[in-house]
């Protein structure tokens, strides 16, 4: 006999809903992705490779990677520290800190970029001091790093806070009562327990760091071969009606996105496997 569940929808409703979801995805995500590659390869593979081999394009790729490489360690450091503080301790201003961590999600990236101009620009708060000491932050790489850091810093912390809260501090207390120092506790107990969540947050932060446009655009100054990241490079080429160059650069970003998706799925799968393993039903007590 067919089992009927109270919440089962008729077959046609399920098909319709699935169809709508898939159609939407195809139209708004699949088609554009395909279009990027078609446009990039419109003038043939040699033109595509030439566009990527162009020195400005290569510089943009390197700069994008450089910024991500600088930003991610700070993200990890801040994310773990903030998540630890929030999940493990009670202190005044804790809820304020939780709210502040979400600020970069709430603020428009352009506003974030403007913020750094106001602080470090020529007529900004620290501008005169910086120009006296010959430091360049705005319209230079340091400013772009700062803007990217601002935009991406919630990812790791937000991934870790619920994870660490649900795991509790028993294991860490057990480690300390067994004589472990703070570092030993962190490396041997805390980190192994949060590693998949941490990796997940880093992957998301990395995707955002490489793809960020608004905030970086405001502080970069668009100096070719110097302060152009991949997203900015795409815009410049496109504005110059260099479709093949623009879409070739865009295809690199699209590939990065695909790699991110695959990495994310693998990590999610691992995380799920670990939780399943932890929640696996226990065998009955064996009597000897």
């Amino acid at each position: 006999m067919k089992a009927h569940r109270a919440n089962a929808e008729p077959r046609w409703v399920r098909l319709l809903l699935t169809g709508i979801a898939l159609g939407f995805l195809g139209l708004f995500l699949g088609l554009p992705l395909i279009a990027v590659f078609i446009e990039a390869l419109a003038a043939g593979v040699p033109a595509y490779l030439a566009a990527l081999a162009d020195s400005e394009a290569r510089h943009a790729i390197m700069l994008t990677l450089l910024i991500a490489l600088i930003v991610l360690p700070f993200n990890i450091l801040f994310g773990v520290a903030a998540a630890w503080a929030i999940a493990r301790f009670e202190f005044r201003g804790k809820s304020l800190l939780v709210t502040l961590i979400d600020l970069p999600f709430a603020v428009s990236p352009v506003v974030a970029g403007m913020l750094f101009i106001l602080l470090f620009g020529a007529r900004g708060l620290f501008g005169p001091w910086l120009s006296d000491h010959d430091f360049r932050i705005i319209f230079a790489v340091p400013g772009m790093v700062l803007a990217t850091m601002f935009i991406t810093f919630p990812f790791v912390a937000r991934e870790l806070i619920p994870l660490m809260q649900s795991q509790g501090k028993d294991e860490e207390e057990a480690a300390v009562s067994l004589g472990a120092s703070g570092w030993q506790m962190f490396w041997r107990v805390t980190l192994p327990n949060i590693k998949w969540g941490l990796l997940y947050g880093v992957i998301l932060a990395n995707a955002r760091a490489m793809g960020e446009f608004g905030a970086v655009s405001v502080v970069s100054g668009h100096i070719r071969g110097e302060t152009n990241t991949l997203p900015l490079h795409v815009e410049i080429l496109y504005n110059e009606y260099n479709a093949v160059g623009a879409f070739a650069a865009a295809s690199v970003l699209a590939l990065l996105a695909l790699v991110t998706l695959v990495a994310k799925s693998i990590v999610e799968w691992r995380m799920q496997k670990e939780t399943e393993m932890l929640e696996a039903s226990l065998p009955p007590e064996k009597t000897e």
């Binding site: 028993d170 294991e171 207390e173 057990a174 480690a175 041997r188 107990v189 192994p192 327990n193």
Partner: peptide, 8 residues
């Protein structure tokens, strides 16, 4: 500990 707190 009540809930064992073994290193998982």
């Amino acid at each position: 500990f009540q809930h064992y707190a073994l290193f998982r």
